[in-house]
C-alpha cells in the first residue's frame, strides 16, 4: 500500500493528498524560492488542475497565506504550448502531465519549476520572445505576392506533404530549446530610464548573438521545401549561418527526445546542416 500504482487508477493505493513543490520568483531579478503546497488527489488529474487548486486555496501546506502561483495555460490539450514548465526535472506541458504518471516517477512529491532557458517573469511564467524573434530572423513564412485571389497554391504530392506536415506542427513551446545544452539563457535587466523600444531593441540584439535553437531550424527546412517558400531559401540559409546559427548545435539530440509533437528535429538539423554548408560554399565562390 505504499507507492501508488498508476497502471490502475481505480486502485485504492492512491494517495489522498498530493505534495507539490513549486519554485517561485516574484519578478525578474528577484531571488527564487521553494514553496510547498498540498492538494486533494483526484482521478485523472493533471498539473493544470493541481495549479488551479493551488490558486483557489492560496495558502501553502503550513497554512501560510500566499499569492496564487502564476502560470500560463491556454488550450489544455497540448496544442498551444502555453503551459510549458519543468516538471520533475523535465521540461514539458503541464496540461498533458498527468498526476498519476508523475507520481510513478516520484511518489513523494511533484516538483514544478519555470523553464530554465528563458527569463522568469513571475513564478512559472517566462518570457519566450526570443523564440519568436528567431522566426523573424529566419524569415519563417511563405512570401506570397498578395492575399488576393490567384487560384490554388502549388501542387504538392502526398509524400512531400507527409514530410512537411510534422514540421508544421511546431507550437513554439520551447521544450526543445530548454533541454538543449547548447542553448543558453539570455536575460537582460531593464536599465533605469530605458524606453520600451530601447529595451526591446537591446533584447533583440542580444538574441541575435544566441543560438536560434532546434525548432526554428526545423522551420527553415519546412519553408525551404515549400515550392513558393523556396524563393527566399538563400536568405534563410544566410541567417542560419550567421552568429547563433545552425553551427551551434552539438548534436546532443535532447531536442527531439523532449519535443511533445514528435517533430523529427534531428532530421531537420541534418538537412539544414547540409544545405547550410552547400550554401556557404556557393556564397564563397560567388562572392
Amino acid at each position: 500500500m505504499s507507492a501508488p500504482t498508476p497502471a490502475n487508477p481505480s486502485s485504492p493505493a492512491h494517495p489522498t493528498k498530493v505534495n507539490v513543490r513549486v519554485l517561485r520568483q516574484d519578478g525578474p531579478g528577484q531571488p527564487a524560492y521553494w514553496e510547498r503546497h498540498q492538494v486533494d488527489y483526484e482521478e485523472n488529474m493533471n498539473v493544470i488542475s493541481v495549479l488551479q487548486k493551488i490558486a483557489a486555496q492560496a495558502q501553502t501546506v503550513d497554512g501560510k497565506k500566499v499569492a496564487p502561483v502564476a502560470w500560463e495555460c491556454g488550450c489544455l490539450e497540448e496544442v498551444c504550448g502555453s503551459c510549458t514548465m519543468v516538471i520533475n526535472g523535465r521540461v514539458r506541458q503541464s496540461c498533458s502531465a498527468l498526476v498519476d504518471s508523475l507520481l510513478a516517477e516520484n511518489a513523494t512529491e511533484i516538483e514544478l519549476r519555470p523553464m530554465e532557458k528563458y527569463p522568469v517573469i513571475r513564478d512559472l511564467v517566462v518570457d519566450r520572445s526570443r523564440l519568436f524573434h528567431a522566426l523573424k530572423r529566419l524569415q519563417a513564412w511563405v512570401p506570397v505576392d498578395t492575399y488576393g485571389h490567384l487560384g490554388p497554391g502549388p501542387r504538392i504530392n502526398r509524400p512531400q506533404q507527409e514530410e512537411m506536415y510534422p514540421l508544421s506542427k511546431c507550437m513554439s513551446c520551447g521544450c526543445c530549446m530548454d533541454a538543449c545544452p547548447q542553448y543558453q539563457k539570455i536575460e537582460l535587466q531593464r536599465r533605469p530610464g530605458e524606453s520600451d523600444e530601447q529595451y526591446q531593441r537591446r533584447k533583440e540584439a542580444a538574441y541575435e548573438q544566441g543560438f536560434v535553437g532546434a525548432a526554428p531550424i526545423s522551420q527553415v527546412v519546412l519553408f525551404n521545401s515549400h515550392p513558393t517558400g523556396k524563393s527566399i531559401a538563400d536568405g534563410r540559409l544566410d541567417a542560419l549561418t550567421e552568429t547563433g546559427g545552425i553551427q551551434v548545435c552539438g548534436n546532443a539530440q535532447n531536442c527531439v527526445a523532449v519535443c511533445p509533437k514528435d517533430i523529427p528535429l534531428t532530421k531537420s538539423i541534418a538537412r539544414a546542416g547540409r544545405a547550410a554548408t552547400l550554401h556557404s560554399i556557393k556564397r564563397f565562390l560567388e562572392k
Binding site: 490554388p152 502526398r158 512531400q160 506536415y165
Partner: peptide, 8 residues
C-alpha cells in the same frame, strides 16, 4: 498558397 500543409 500560404503554405498550409493540407492533406493531399
Amino acid at each position: 498558397r500560404l503554405g498550409v500543409t493540407f492533406n493531399r
